[in-house]
Design a binder for these strands. Structure first.
Lengths: 211, 211
DNA sequence: GTTGAAATTAGTACGAA
DNA sequence: TTCGTACTAATTTCAAC
């Protein structure tokens, strides 16, 4: 089970350390930036690239891991080479009060790479990777449709993955668009009222992950 | 620029090696499985966990990288800790014949973690990570709406990420649901799509495994 | 927080099965 | 191909500054 599902919506432990465990400074972010591109870099080389001493790099590296800012390390693979060349998104409408069952069933679906609860017309989005289109059909009709918690589904295929970054960092913006930050800071207004949200489904205010 | 956008829809180089560069056997998949959970594991420890010699592990590890099956290594981070606690999906309708412009603009948006071209009602799905909801608004209205290629957008927020696996592997299914493979093998019908991807090659690999 | 040296570990090369 | 081993290079740890 992933840390995400274990900790719920916030991605943080539910209690005990609600506050910020580790205040990330620019050097921490720089470390995360280097590790994003090369997760197997040695701490010694990391220290050099960040511009700090080895011991400092070890301390910060361990702190980031212990704090949970770094949850782990993994490889990035070519799905086609691995034999799973078909990617699909399945938007699911979940029957209220049956979220717990829905989550339990999800854990038994190894072809699911990502699942998020969303606002809007549907309640959840599932991303699956399979070998052929027939398996998508099997997933939706045989597996998902048989879950009582699933009220309806809508499937779309992914034709091309244009962009896939391991993760985004706050510093990325400043590097790509230095002018924007200054403009935003002087705007002074939070234009929430003009947002065009997609209307949340009825009863979504009571959404609980264990409901 | 990512390999994905460089190579287009298939994720493979456009020419020269259309065929499968490296036939992945069970040991290759086992290596990918271990690296998925611990991308920083030493090759020596990897060899032990997979059950092969160190020399063999180095050979296969390097082959997987050279072949492109492994595209790289990265960290997994806690987005909230990194200061980007808001995740949103923006579904975009793109004006035909303007895909090139759309892709070019995407490259200039550092807060975009993922973008895929999809079938269905919309043409693309963008996932963004930002610090607050106001930034989502800024992204949609200031950035996306000003791109001529963008005809319309629809935004939903991600309330919870239930599941997030680095990647899915073909072997995951057999481990989670051993009954399915047997049922498929005795069904008598071969899904058409499957023949295109593995076909006779799978049989050869199976024979080699026993020898 | 930094530097430098010792101990450990990783990576390479090569011969044999 | 794969394995085992020896050799070389690098990293991590630990101590003193």
């Amino acid at each position: 089970m992933s840390e995400i599902s274990r900790y719920g919506a916030s991605g943080r432990p539910p209690a005990g350390r609600i506050g910020i465990g580790l205040e990330l400074d620019d050097i921490h972010l720089k470390i995360l930036e280097v590790l994003r591109e090369n997760g197997r870099i040695s701490v010694a080389a990391l220290a050099e690239r960040v511009g700090i001493s080895r011991a400092n790099a070890y301390t910060r590296f361990e702190a980031l891991r212990a704090d949970g800012a770094i949850k782990g390390f993994t490889a990035e693979i070519d799905h086609v080479r691995a034999g799973l060349g078909i990617t699909a998104l399945i938007f699911v409408t979940v029957r209220q009060q049956m979220w717990k069952q829905f989550r339990a069933e999800l854990a038994r679906m190894p072809e699911v790479e990502y699942c998020a609860i969303t606002t809007g017309q549907h309640d959840a989005m599932i991303q699956v990777r399979v070998a052929d289109v027939a398996e998508v059909h099997a997933m939706v009709t045989d597996r998902l449709a048989n879950i009582p918690a699933v009220k309806a589904t809508e499937t779309v295929f992914i034709l091309d993955e244009v962009l896939k970054r391991p993760y985004v960092l706050p510093g990325d913006r400043d590097r790509d668009r230095p002018a924007r930050r200054a403009a935003q800071e002087t705007s002074g207004e939070v234009p929430l009222g003009k947002m065009r949200f997609v209307g949340a489904a009825e009863g979504r205010a009571a959404l609980q992950k264990d409901g």
